[in-house]
Write a protein that binds this DNA or RNA. Structure first.
Lengths: 370, 370
DNA sequence: ATTTTTTATGCAATCGATTGCATGTTTACA
DNA sequence: TGTAAACATGCAATCGATTGCATAAAAAAT
């Protein structure tokens, strides 16, 4: 009503605003009641079924009728009640995303990828984080399950030993897409990168720069992802007949203190390594800083290759050579895979693994030659 | 069925597992059907009303009956159907968060604050971004509205001229909490910081470091937030009787190119400014880099103060003096405010503005004296 | 033993939209 | 003109949980 009036006469708006401001009760009461298809039906003197069908653009409804119903719906400020629809159709048009932690540029770009694709397909996105805690992860899974999301995209916590907490989804044929985790469990798809190839690429690059004593810093070697990167790294060394000692691996959580600690361990190695492949850019950045503070030159004394292509890498000096990890694309791919499954294109049974392309981004921290 | 059998005879479990593994079709069909309160009612030979009440821990239900119903529900793998509940109760236990863009550490920490508080209160969080586009923002608002979220937390796009797209919420008495925006519209609460004070604090610090020709880089001066920071900045200069010329303000969007451009403009000013207050850390980081590349020393030639306390500030050299902007706390405060409103503690009518504490984080980029 | 109170449970309507089936109406074709 | 085909619309059940009101049963009071 007021919308229409407002389009025509300016003063009407003023009057309404006046009322709105000074008579909140009348205002809220007035606008509080929801318009349903029954209200529309009454107005156009047709049945609710017809209204429902018209709004869905059902072919059996006369075009003129549809037009009229659409107009009246618009006029009355109708909005579909998703609960009712969901209750009837048994779906929520919502996908759940579980991530370890909302704390990195990478996660953020991942989410924006999911969000974009999902929204375009009409899905909402519910995000929940596990703070990298296995128990909270299980609770979250339950929570999402109870919310009847149509599908889940998840980045497992690093301590996750199995996928049991996703069984509820699998059992109900709710698609699950894992990001960057490798599990061959049937009914679960995964989207990721070729971690072994990445480790190989990093090591190969360092070797090409002339490094011969190459160390590795990783957050842990238990997750398949990290283990594979390490394997690729070892493989490249072996292929080039470069000796490697397991003492040249430093395991350090991704915190500032631990990263400094790790850098110190590297500096204490004798002979000093001339290159290091570090599993994430944050740690790499801290290490570079620590090296420089201790008069260890980068890349001259130690060449550094990180992982993730975090924006931080372009700010530090020397800038950081790293492996570009396509976060947004991964999110988008995961969402697309999930939605395809929801639409029946590619059923859960034929679930597969999708591997995205990665690339080495060479910057200053690793270039010894010119 | 299988649940009960499993509780009694171990071997039965094994048989079932066997079937599950080798007969996925039977498996999924079997587990597909949802348990409802009617199923439970039938099993315990009571009415659905009683079951419903028991599950809500209604006082009118006999304790033993409750116990029994709980047990059976557990056994049958019952999960409440939120649609039905929502349909009846007219709420979704979900809050919507609209942000400009999911692209910064700040947004991420903000979201994690919202998420934490909301989850603890039993609410889910739906996140949607506007890519800083006013139209998408309006569409998103509509989208969330149709999803019948119980409340909205939003960070307006920088181009937003008014809050019209939130009227749908206000009209339906759905609480809206703005983050870091100042609008006195009734029915809308906001959570933010004292931007004027921040600008003042930054300028005062630079002055104390001996700066007398202080420039300012901002993304635009139209949003109240930026205008207020600028005002505080100007006020501090005036209080200290330091001349200021509007040509010392550079307006530059937050992109790498524009930031470099801005740095160049600063360097071209004659006489060269001896201090600059930059509205965000990313731009500040790029400027510092650009300055250094052009042999302009920081802080000796130009002292720099940023804004936001982005992690980047600790990595660059010199490290960046900045204003700590409590992202996670803001998110948490916004969520708490919203949930209080939803619970009736503090009604929408008495909506107010909540201002959080900020602080100057002094690092290397601004310290000229010792 | 009878009445009142308390306690426990059930009935049936409600929340809105959807949809299979039935029915009524119009058009087309023989 | 009769009849099949195509088109349009309505009826009523369904999705699951909630809840005001009624009622039955047990306990307490008289």
């Amino acid at each position: 009503m007021n919308g229409i009036a407002g389009d025509i006469i300016i003063t009407t708006i003023v009057v309404f605003l006046f009322i709105f401001s000074y008579n909140p009760v009348a205002h809220s009461m007035d606008s509080q009641k929801e318009i349903t298809i029954y209200d529309i039906a009454k107005k156009v003197k047709l049945s609710a079924s017809t209204v429902s069908r018209a709004l869905q653009d059902h072919p059996a409804i006369n075009k003129k009728t549809k037009k009229k119903i659409f107009d009246v719906a618009e006029q009355m400020g109708y909005r579909s009640n998703l609960f009712a629809r969901n209750l009837r159709q048994q779906r929520t048009m919502t996908i759940g995303v579980m991530v370890q932690e909302l704390n990195s540029a990478f996660m953020t770009s991942l989410l924006s990828g999911v969000e974009k694709v999902a929204n375009e397909a009409g899905y909402g996105v519910v995000i929940i984080d596990s703070l990298d805690d296995v128990e909270k992860e299980a609770a979250n899974a339950r929570n999402l399950f109870n919310r009847r999301i149509d599908g889940v995209i998840t980045w497992l916590s690093s301590g996750a030993k199995n996928l049991d907490h996703f069984n509820v989804f699998v059992d109900k044929s709710i698609p699950v897409v894992l990001i960057d985790s490798l599990h061959q469990q049937s009914g679960i798809t995964s989207v990721g990168i070729d971690n072994r190839a990445c480790g190989h690429m990093a090591a190969k690059h360092l070797i090409e720069q002339g490094c011969r004593r190459i160390a590795h810093i990783t957050s842990n070697l238990k997750t398949p992802v990290n283990a594979l990167r390490y394997k690729g790294f070892r493989d490249a060394l072996a292929e080039n007949k470069i000796a490697f000692n397991e003492r040249m691996v430093v395991v350090a959580p991704v915190t500032e203190e631990d990263s400094i600690e790790a850098a110190k361990k590297i500096m204490q190695m004798k002979p000093l390594p001339d290159g290091v492949f570090i599993n994430n850019d944050f740690t790499a950045a801290v290490c570079i800083r620590t090296f420089l503070e201790n008069k260890v030159k980068v890349p001259q004394d130690i060449a550094v290759v990180g992982f993730n292509n975090d924006p931080i890498g372009t700010f530090i000096r020397p800038s950081l050579t790293t492996i570009n990890y396509p976060g947004k694309e991964m999110g988008a791919a995961a969402a697309r895979t999930l939605i395809n499954q929801l639409n029946g294109v590619g059923t859960i049974e034929q679930a597969s693994n999708l591997t995205l392309r990665t690339e080495l981004v060479v910057r200053q921290s690793s270039v010894k030659k010119r």
